[in-house]
Design a protein around this nucleic acid. Structure first.
Lengths: 366, 366
DNA sequence: ATTAGCACTCTCGTGCCTTGATTGCCAATC
DNA sequence: GATTGGCAATCAAGGCACGAGAGTGCTAAT
């Protein structure tokens, strides 16, 4: 539902240009300055501040009339009569679509992100979790991410490890270097020799297949060739299903809620609570990230453009990342509407690229 | 530092009895009622409330003089002159040590906890993380837990899996069914045949050894027998070190911070922030859990008994859990001083027992 | 079209007052 | 002598008025 409103940012947002009438030069400059100043200070911006801090070349009175006009057109809002102006959703949107200068990270920042991603262990969940942590620390906002749908990964290796008479440990490795594992306790005693043969057999038969292709039936067929306890067959199937089934298809990681405490817009405990509940619930964040999978670049959703009324004072930036050159997962940042859009987009872009590099596909191609 | 103050709860706290003079019957009853009522309502308790809600058989005036006396002796405090009484640290301590009735969980609750623990995957980190999540949801407080020191675990199996010309996946399984894994990228091409032989060799040589016994030197010696790339040897050593070294010896999991928002004592954002920072920092929580490893049962630390001044309005209950019948890890709960001590102790006890059952030692003995 | 001047509006902080809850004390009572 | 009822004293919290400050919108002059 949010995707309808949220416009893409990167590939020259034509829709936005069509919808939003272009503002004249002076209005543009004033709107931009108000947004910039408000993002920086968090205080409503008045005509005096604008003329004093920025060299606009016009008097406060003129600024006032322009502000009134921008207010009327819906780009700005007044918290109350005797306060300065604050950007509205529309004002932020105009800023994001047309005014904002893209920011570039310093080489150190880029390297920091790349390094953090690279030094993660090769477990998919851990990588994505780590990515969201890094982003949340870097941005001092809430960061969240979803893992790729796993069914598209390619089977590389399975190992049935005999770790006790009644316990077998399963390890599944895919082309992304990701591994899943589980220990299975079997009623019947497992035979180490049989396990070895079964391992061999499974690997020979399944090599190169997409995880989603491997069904319980297929496994049964293979199991029949070696005397493998039924419990193990279903365990293997479960392990696969956990990664391809509708349920566990994707995992969502979110973190950094404590950063909200620093934001003055969340001084109100009820608002804070609403957002924290949103994090617990996961559904909404999931939908936002899922929606961004269809776009090539960053997606920005501002205030009421977001699907949830509780988020009307927030903005969300999401960026998809690729596995084997196809959009597969996404990372995002949730913060107050008054966020540093350009910087967050740059950071997310960099993170997405780092993940792309990690998930380039076949490890041996690297 | 906290352990000095925190007294054990279960095994008849003699020290407490020696230190704290016994209060007369009526004072005891009043103190108990005040604590009970305050825990239930969160409002300072006055003489009127006490005589109306509880059948004390004495008039408000008499209650008042007793309250004044308990106040003087340091068991109660007054937020301000015209308010009711609130338990002090000492008051809570007396309550916890001598007044509180142990609570028993319903069979459903016990089963719920046991079930949650059992259905966890057999990865140590995941189990402990899950345990802390379950506790935090059940108690609507912050729950936290540390994993066992891993060096005491016994090597059961290692597997070097060839997942690409330049990538090898290592899986380590211990007697607890726990597994750790990592993917290693090697500069030299790994030979599948060699990996197989090395796997065999390592398993034969290391079976039954404590992880802490396995040193880099020993690994090198074994590696020399089969042509194993140096990178893999160090990777194996790193994997082991990660689990036995001082650094990664234990992991701490904490969660449920959002529950604090419901507590009226954390309406103040600064206090909230102080606690959240504590969670991030981990050090303090770690120390608390580590301290509880020496005790047999639950440990309660109240207000200023805690090591950190920021926690002076909180209490912490910790309980150790066992691996192979020896205290190895611990779980704890952090909440406002006004917590349901008896219930939390019961829940933690149950959780510890469930973990004990899971970590009973050799899986094949089950 | 722009600007200076000015009256107007609204928030925020301060201080004051009232209200209500609770105590501590004292004299009367069992 | 412990207990009790009565009563003045105390203090937080909420409501209200008031002034300061910030910022606007309007109007008349440039």
């Amino acid at each position: 539902m949010s995707a309808k409103h949220a416009k893409q940012q990167r590939p020259a947002p034509e829709t936005a240009r069509a919808k939003e009438p272009e503002l004249d030069r002076r209005k543009t400059s004033i709107l931009g300055t108000v947004v910039y100043e408000y993002i920086a200070t968090g205080e409503p911006v008045g005509s005096a501040t604008l003329t004093q801090k920025y060299n606009l070349g016009i008097s406060p009175a003129t600024v006032r009339s322009e502000l009134a006009s921008l207010d009327e057109e819906g780009y700005l809002e007044q918290p109350h009569t005797s306060a300065g102006r604050v950007p509205s959703d529309r004002g932020y949107r105009y800023y994001v679509d047309r005014l904002m200068l893209p920011e570039t990270l310093t080489p150190e920042e880029r390297e920091r992100i790349r390094g953090e991603v690279r030094r993660a262990t090769h477990q998919l969940d851990a990588v994505v979790d780590h990515a969201s942590h890094v982003l949340s620390n870097l941005t001092r906002s809430i960061a969240f991410a979803i893992t790729p749908r796993l069914g598209s990964q390619v089977f590389r290796h399975i190992e049935l490890i005999h770790v006790g008479a009644h316990a077998t440990h399963l390890v599944l490795v895919t082309n992304l270097g990701l591994a899943a594992q589980v220990t299975v306790e079997t009623a019947h005693e497992a035979n180490a020799e049989h396990l070895l043969r079964a391992t061999h057999n499974l690997n020979a038969r399944l090599e190169g297949k997409a995880l989603s292709e491997i069904t319980l039936d297929k496994l049964r067929a293979i199991a029949r060739e070696t005397p493998l306890p039924e419990e193990l067959v279903t365990a293997v199937a479960d392990l696969l299903a956990e990664h391809t089934g509708v349920e566990g298809e994707r995992r969502l990681f979110a973190g950094g809620a404590h950063n909200l405490l620093d934001q003055q817009e969340f001084r109100d405990l009820r608002k804070l609570r609403a957002i924290l509940d949103l994090l617990e619930e996961q559904q909404t964040l999931y939908a936002l990230l899922h929606g961004s999978l269809n776009s090539a670049g960053p997606t920005v959703a501002i205030g009421h453009e977001l699907p949830n009324a509780d988020m009307s004072e927030c903005s969300v930036v999401t960026v998809p990342y690729k596995v084997a050159n196809k959009n597969a997962g996404a990372v995002g940042i949730l913060g107050p509407r008054r966020m540093q859009y350009a910087r967050l987009i740059a950071l997310l872009d960099c993170m997405a690229e780092s993940l792309n590099a990690l998930f380039v596909g076949e490890p041996e191609l690297e």
